[in-house]
Design a protein around this nucleic acid. Sequence first.
DNA 1: AACCAGGACTCTG
DNA 2: CAGAGTCCTGGT
Length: 303
Amino acid sequence: MSNSFEILYDEYEGDFDLEFTLNSGQTSHPPFKKLDDSYYELVEINDELVVIKLTQDGLNAPLIVEYFTQKQDISNLVKERIFYMFDLNYDMKFYNFIKNSDELSDILEFNRGLRIIRAHNPFECIISSICSANNSIKRWTKTIEKIREGYGKSVQVGEETFYMFPTPEEFLKISEKSLKDLGAGYRSSYMLNTANLILKHDDFNNEILNMSYEDAFKEVLKLEGVGPKVADCILLYGFNMNKAYPVDVWINRITTYLYFNSKKVSNKRIMSFAHDKFGVYAGYVQLYLFNYARMSGLMDKLK
DNA sequence: AACCAGGACTCTG
DNA sequence: CAGAGTCCTGGT
């Protein structure tokens, strides 16, 4: 059965544009499935699989939420999940911070309505992030979708089937050869070894969650296939740590363009610069700069 | 058909 | 600590 409700502009902080956000290339998970003018995603709420359908007619328009479930009305829980997923309670001081910066104020306008998308859970985020390393968004998306369709739980609504990312137990049933066949390449063994380690390490997620950003970074870096960039993606999207500033080529290019007069600067220096300069807003600044660098055409010219 | 883009890892200086 | 080569595959 299905239920529905709306989330109105004055219920959340700041601006929100669903479509813009979902298409911004964030590697927390692949884009939601689009059918007609709505976006669908399968989520797990209190051990129950729920298909969520989201519709929004542009920036700050009412977000129409419909969900499909076996049990009764769980609108409160679904709403809570959506607020978490798109960080709808986020800190408005970020807007003021970025608005008052000479280098960043144009970028705020360009990205109006863009939000961080939080991953469904740390495990999915960690494995997906490892798969994103040295990979294109397109190929990464294809691989993750095939992993879901081949090995995750599924729910059917009407004609459509929706898939979860596999749990650690389900994931570890995949052979290395199968993962390679799905396009994960040499990352396959990293993904499997890390999944195995997390499954054996009892309370891994809670331990990370209770650490400072700095300690968590060092800990996640120990996982196979996780370097500085992937570590920061995991902490930002999977563990809600907003100090993370994942530095990929795009972030390196635009940060050096804006703050280092386009000189060559190592990723390591970019990271520590961002921590000093942006503090707790680093994660959002990264998202806004990344999207701007990809979408504005500016970086293509500079290349 | 050769070459490049995209991060992590490993080895070397 | 920095720099270089290798890994896989889709794109030119």
